[in-house]
Simulated scan of single mutants.
Amino acid sequence: MRVDRHSKVLIIGSGPAGYTAAIYAARAALEPLLIEGLQPGGQLTITTDVENWPGDVSVMGPDLMARMRAQVAHVGTQVVSDTIVEVDLTAKPFVAVGDDGSRYTGDAVVIATGASARWLGLDTETRYRGAGVSACATCDGFFYRGRTVAVVGGGNTAVEEALYLTNFAAKVYLIHRRGALRADRTNQARLRANPLIEPIWHAEVAEVLGDGRVVTGLKLRDRRDGRLRDLAADGLFVAIGHDPATGLFRRQLAMDDEGYILVAPGSTATSVAGVFAAGDVQDRQFRQAVTSAGMGCMAALEAERFLAGHTPHAIAAEPGAPVTT
C-alpha cells in the first residue's frame, strides 16, 4: 500500500554505512527514516566469517547486520522494507519514490546504497562463493596462510590484491586474459619483484573446481588456442572491479568515470547541498565494513550540522550546488 512519509534525514540503503548513519542521526533526535533496499544489510549478509570487525574475534556477516539493524530500531529509526526506484534531488525537500509508488521526503539525504563486486559469471564461482571464492583479499586473505591462491584481473586492484595475499599465502597466481597488465608501472614493478607471485598470461577461468565443500583448483582456458588445463589452488580472488549502486543519482550528483559519487575532501558532502554519500558508494579504495561505518557516522554528523544551519523554509528555497559529470 502506498504511503507518504517525511523525515529530517532520509537514509537510502542499509549495510554498515546506512545503519551507522541511522544510529547517529537518531541519537541526534533527527528522527531518521531508513529505506533498506533490495539487500537489507548489504554485502555482509552474504559473507560468512568476519574476523576484522572491532570487538568480535569472529562473527557471521548476517549476524553482525542483524545486530546493527536491531540497534537501529532500538534508537528509534523508522526502518522501511522498500526499494527506491526514483529520486529527485532538485526538489526541496528531497524526494525518493519506492517500488510501490510510496513517496519519501527528507530535509537531508544520506546515500548508502553501496557497491557490488563484478564476478566472472560462472555457476561454479557462485557455488563456492564464501567457500574459497572471494572478491576481497583484505577481508579473507588471512584464511589462506601457507596455502596457494589465485587472483583474476589485470588492473591495479588485481595486482594490489596479489601483493597483499603474499603476506599470507605460500604461492599466488595472477591470471590475466591478456599478455600485459593494465596496472600502473609501479605496481607492475612490485609484482615482478615478488617471488611468490607467478603470472599466468592469456588465460581465463573456465570453471572453479572443488570437492563440494571448498575450492580445490581451477580449470583454465588458454585464450589463444582454447586448450584447457587444471591449476591446483585453495582459493580464488576475483579482482575485476566493483560497480557502485549509483544509477538512481546519475545526472543529479557529480560522479567519477566509474560511477562513484564524488564528495568534498575529508567529508561525505556531495555536489548537492544537504545530500551526503557514505560507504562503498563513494569509496573506491578501501571498501571495508569499518570504513563504511565510519563514513556513515560522518554523514549523520554532517547532516545534523547542515540542518542546524537551515530552517525548513530555507531548505525548501535553497538551490542545490551545480552538478558536473
Rank of each mutant, 00 (worst) to 15 (best):
P319W: 15
R27E: 03
P319T: 10
C297R: 01
D107S: 13
M1K: 00
R67E: 10
H310R: 11
F249L: 09
V75I: 14
L218F: 01
R224Y: 03
N194G: 03
Y24W: 09
L34W: 02
A112M: 11
L301D: 05
M65H: 13
R192S: 13
G212E: 12
R145Q: 15
P40Y: 05
V238C: 07
A316F: 09
G274M: 07
E161V: 10
V151R: 09
R69T: 03
G42V: 06
V110D: 02
V214L: 06
A25E: 11
I46M: 15
L33V: 07
S102W: 10
D63C: 04
A269F: 04
D256Y: 09
D99N: 11
D107P: 11
C139A: 07
R178S: 12
E86F: 11
P16R: 05
W119H: 08
G18P: 06
G226N: 09
F143M: 13
T138V: 11
V214M: 04
T311Y: 04
R145S: 12
Y144G: 10
R192L: 12
T20V: 08
P265E: 14
A269L: 11
C136K: 03
D56Q: 04
L196T: 13
E207P: 03
V57R: 10
D100F: 04
G55T: 07
V72T: 11
S7R: 08
D256L: 11
I175N: 00
R69L: 11
P62Y: 13
V133R: 02
V151H: 09
T83W: 01
L120H: 04
V85C: 00
F143Y: 15
R69F: 03
D49K: 06
A131E: 15
G210D: 01
T105I: 08
A245M: 02
P312K: 06
V59Y: 06
A189V: 09
V133M: 02
V85Q: 01
H242C: 00
A303K: 01
G76V: 11
D230W: 00
A321K: 12
G259D: 12
L34K: 02
A180M: 04
Q78K: 04
R223K: 15
A115I: 13
W119Q: 05
I175G: 03
E302F: 07
A189Q: 15
A203S: 06
D88C: 08
L64E: 02
E31R: 13
V263D: 10
A308N: 15
I84N: 03
E204H: 07
R213D: 14
S102E: 08
D4I: 07
S81I: 12
N187T: 00
A254M: 06
Y164P: 01
L218R: 00
T126G: 04
H202S: 02
R178I: 02
F276Q: 02
T270Y: 07
V149I: 15
G130V: 06
I84P: 04
P322Y: 13
E125P: 05
G76L: 09
A29S: 02
P16M: 04
P16H: 03
R147V: 06
E125L: 04
E198S: 12
L38E: 14
Q285M: 15
G294S: 08
Q288M: 05
H6R: 14
R227F: 04
A308G: 15
A206Q: 08
A169G: 05
R185M: 14
G76I: 12
L191I: 07
D257T: 14
